[in-house]
Amino acid sequence: MQLKELLTEDRAVSPVIGVILMVAITVILAAVIGTFVLGLGDQVSESAPQASFSFDFNTSNTSATITHEGGETLENSNIGVSGDDGTPNGANNFAGSTITAGDSSVYGSVSPGETIRVIWTNPAGGATNTIARATAPQS
């Protein structure tokens, strides 16, 4: 008779499931709160903009014309242009506070075989991303 009572006894099932659910909820809440406290949530939303640039190299006067072909509108203050040596060489010459499709800039002092980069600087954290690059033709 005692064996039959043992098999039908199910009082402990509900408290065990309740404890498991409470632990799961606590872990999920801790992960979400920790993500925002450590600032990881801000970094996820701040990715490099998607924009297309074309480069027209003029070998006679060693310059390059950089044209925004399409994509997102960019803030001029967040964009820089640099060559292989990493120095901006006058940063960029885009007019206005924003750079939209059709805007262009001239970058001077381009050596044959030099790679020119359009660099976006994250305004929130200062991290940089190269959003376009091209290499000048050899002489």
Rank of each mutant, 00 (worst) to 15 (best):
G39L: 08
V110Y: 01
L3S: 11
G83D: 06
F36C: 05
G90R: 00
A48M: 07
G96L: 12
E72Q: 14
N129T: 09
E46K: 04
A24W: 02
I20Q: 14
A31W: 11
I33N: 06
T121I: 04
A101N: 00
N58I: 09
T62A: 15
A48Y: 05
T128D: 14
T128M: 15
A24V: 11
P88E: 10
G90Y: 01
V27R: 02
T115V: 10
I99W: 01
G113N: 06
D10Q: 10
T62Q: 14
V44A: 08
Q138F: 12
G39M: 07
E69V: 13
S77Q: 14
L29E: 08
N58S: 11
T130S: 12
T135L: 03
N129H: 12
N61V: 11
P137M: 06
A101C: 03
F36Y: 13
A64T: 06
T26K: 04
S45L: 09
T115A: 11
L21H: 07
P112C: 07
F55M: 03
F94K: 02
M22T: 11
G102F: 07
V27W: 01
P49M: 09
P123M: 13
Q43D: 03
Q50R: 09
Y107R: 02
I28D: 12
V19E: 13
T130E: 05
V44S: 04
A30M: 13
A31V: 08
N129F: 13
S139D: 12
A51F: 01
P15V: 11
G113H: 02
T87I: 11
L74Y: 01
G70M: 02
R133K: 15
P137T: 02
G126F: 00
N129S: 15
T8M: 12
F57Y: 12
P49I: 01
A134T: 07
V19A: 15
I33L: 14
N93W: 11
Y107I: 00
I119G: 02
S97N: 15
G125I: 08
D103I: 05
V19C: 06
S45R: 11
D103P: 00
G34L: 09
A124C: 04
A91T: 11
V13G: 05
L29H: 05
E114F: 00
S54K: 07
K4V: 11
D42K: 13
V27Y: 00
R133H: 09
T121L: 07
N93M: 08
A12T: 11
I28C: 13
